[in-house]
């Protein structure tokens, strides 16, 4: 059986917000180490991988590996019934077809209980090759959100170029072009710092629609990492204390 107690429903809500537009159904793979989810969008252009560590829960027990097939729209609805600071327990029996969610109010005696239907989802975990990336950019997640939102007003795609100068995001639209250069900052310790590690110059083009979607994870984590090599998928990684959310996005080629 699974019993996982989270300090706050808000974490799960933010996580759902960050994936529900990419993926409709997904298996939450539970094992003694925690909960994992890996799913591709319908067009097989983007992949999202989520990991929640067992140690990040107030209490965590999973006797044997079990997949919980979840419709994310339904889970979003059930989670809307929780206050952000409710203590939230997820429970499922072995071979169960329901997920039980209990919300305990922090400062009152309210206890709410919901049962949500689970589904059988055929999904095979993809093999993601270990990649040595040629460039790693670490920046405030709010800045990344802002850049991709701004440029998505102009065009469909963005070219991301990493050089000694900094990281440049450029988009060409029918009516207007735009480019944003973010230079490396001196103080690495600053939470507003932009850090660039680079083995070689990279330049890749991506669909902004997906990046805008990924950037919703900013609510989970103040920093984001962009990992890039020429001609391989971009990795956008948000590491929050309790786990991570990583997105992979296939590049566009040619003009």
């Amino acid at each position: 059986m699974l019993e996982a107690k989270l300090a706050e429903a808000g974490t799960l809500k933010k996580l759902l917000d960050a994936i529900k537009e990419l993926v409709t159904d997904a298996n939450f793979e539970c094992n003694e180490e925690g909960i994992n989810l890996q799913a591709m969008d319908n067009s097989h252009v983007a992949l999202v991988a989520v990991h929640l560590e067992a140690a990040g829960f107030k209490r965590y027990r999973c006797d044997r590996p079990m997949p919980l097939g979840v419709n994310l729209t339904s889970l979003t609805k059930v989670l809307k019934c929780a206050k952000d600071d409710d203590i939230t327990t997820l429970k499922a029996a072995d071979e169960a077809d329901v997920l039980n969610l209990v919300y305990e109010a922090k400062n009152s005696d309210r206890i709410a209980e919901y049962d949500m239907k689970l589904m059988d989802i055929d999904s095979d975990t993809l093999g993601i090759p270990d990649t040595e990336y040629d460039a790693r950019v670490t920046m405030p997640s709010a800045e990344f959100t802002r850049v991709v939102r701004d440029l998505s007003q102009l065009g469909e795609s963005v070219r991301i170029e990493v050089s000694k100068e900094g990281v440049r995001f450029a988009s060409e639209g029918e009516a207007a072009n735009g480019s944003v250069l973010m230079k490396q900052t001196d103080d690495d310790e600053d939470t507003q710092a932009i850090t660039i590690e680079m083995n070689q110059h990279v330049s890749l083009t991506f669909s902004l629609k997906y990046l805008v979607n990924f950037s919703k994870s900013a609510s989970l984590c103040p920093r984001v990492q962009l990992m890039m090599s020429n001609d391989v998928p971009l990795l956008v990684a948000y590491d929050f204390g309790q786990g991570y959310i990583r997105y992979y996005l296939a590049p566009k080629i040619g003009d």
């Binding site: 090759p129 083009t205 566009k252 003009d255």
Partner: peptide, 14 residues
């Protein structure tokens, strides 16, 4: 602007 590739080319699809 450009042709969108899929992840199949890069990842081991089952």
């Amino acid at each position: 602007m450009g042709r969108q590739q899929t992840l199949a080319k890069f990842f081991d699809m089952p």
